[in-house]
Nucleic acid binder design. Structure first.
Lengths: 169, 169
DNA sequence: GTCAATATGACTGCACGCTGTCAATGCTCT
DNA sequence: AGAGCATTGACAGCGTGCAGTCATATTGAC
């Protein structure tokens, strides 16, 4: 077992582990920001996706924009609807896929949350610098695209090639 | 609601959202890597922490090293023990806090997982470049430290300053 | 030596995202 | 018009991490 440390110090391992920790820190920060307003990080993000769509997207569309599966967003959306923060409007193009929109209360709450976030976001960018923040964002996007490509290319050696959907290799 | 887009294009928002997506992509990649060996990302990471500690740490110590709370690691460790991959050895310094160690099967499995990971990790670093990977890792660490500092400094306006533990304003 | 503070494990409950499955809806091709 | 396929919402189950609580074990102050 003398190979564990070298595997951990691998640059890719450092990237992965640091990403996990940063992810946790960001969620913790987000939760702390919006908790006093009765929200959570996830609900806030869904409300943001709704606001960004101007209420023209159903749940599945929001999920695509957020990079999540439908079911995750559906649960949050239902809870937000139960809380009176979002409503489902008829969709002229699809009878079942109702359009998710913010209610008056939802929009007001989201504006308040946005104000709180922008204060923190400005402070964060001020500390690390505009250029560095932009470079970091680009790096994260690049890294994700590589990871996703790797994810698609990894083939399971213990898996027979019959039941595969996408493994075009 | 015309302020949603500007909040989303904020450099800090981009960083946060990209971090969430990268986190998800990494977990998906990790799961896919170790699934054929009967593991998950979380169990693999805990095994890694155990291997890195050389079996000299109890659950709480592993959790500290990983940046998680005890309970999360405890559950995984119990499951790994049930699967015969780790065992709990007596701790000369503490009767309850048994030392978590890999069993022979656990160590062998971890070595196999490590080999699989190193192949992918090398491919990833080869694509983005060694220097860029190192710079990215440093950036992530810096960003996390700033986010954690912000988390500690954020005070809740609707919260009376009596019940606070760490808010050294 | 005693007692409070701390550390640890055990247990419960919760939030979140995923997979899998099913029925209903909409779209495309023949 | 009809068949086949993709999309969508609904529902169930699972893995992971967190907070809270309690009992036990260890440590430190007195």
């Amino acid at each position: 077992m003398s190979d564990a440390p070298e595997a951990f110090s691998h640059p890719a391992s450092v990237l992965a582990l640091e990403t996990f920790r940063l992810n946790g820190a960001l969620i913790a920060l987000g939760d702390k920001l919006v908790a006093p307003l009765g929200l959570t990080s996830a609900r806030w993000q869904v409300m943001g996706a709704i606001a960004g769509s101007r209420g023209t997207l159903p749940v599945a569309g929001l999920a695509r924009n957020m990079g999540l599966v439908r079911q995750s967003v559906q649960r949050i959306a239902d809870e937000l609807a139960a809380a009176g923060l979002v409503s489902f409007a008829p969709n002229p193009h699809h009878r079942r896929a109702k359009l998710v929109q913010l209610t008056g209360r939802g929009a007001a709450l989201f504006e308040e949350v946005t104000a709180r976030w922008l204060a923190v976001a400005d402070a964060l960018v001020a500390e690390i610098g505009h250029d560095e923040a932009d470079r970091g964002g680009a790096f994260l996007r690049l890294l994700r695209s590589r990871v996703e490509a790797l994810h698609a290319s990894v083939v399971d050696p213990t898996d027979e090639p019959s039941g595969q959907k996408d493994a075009a290799a």
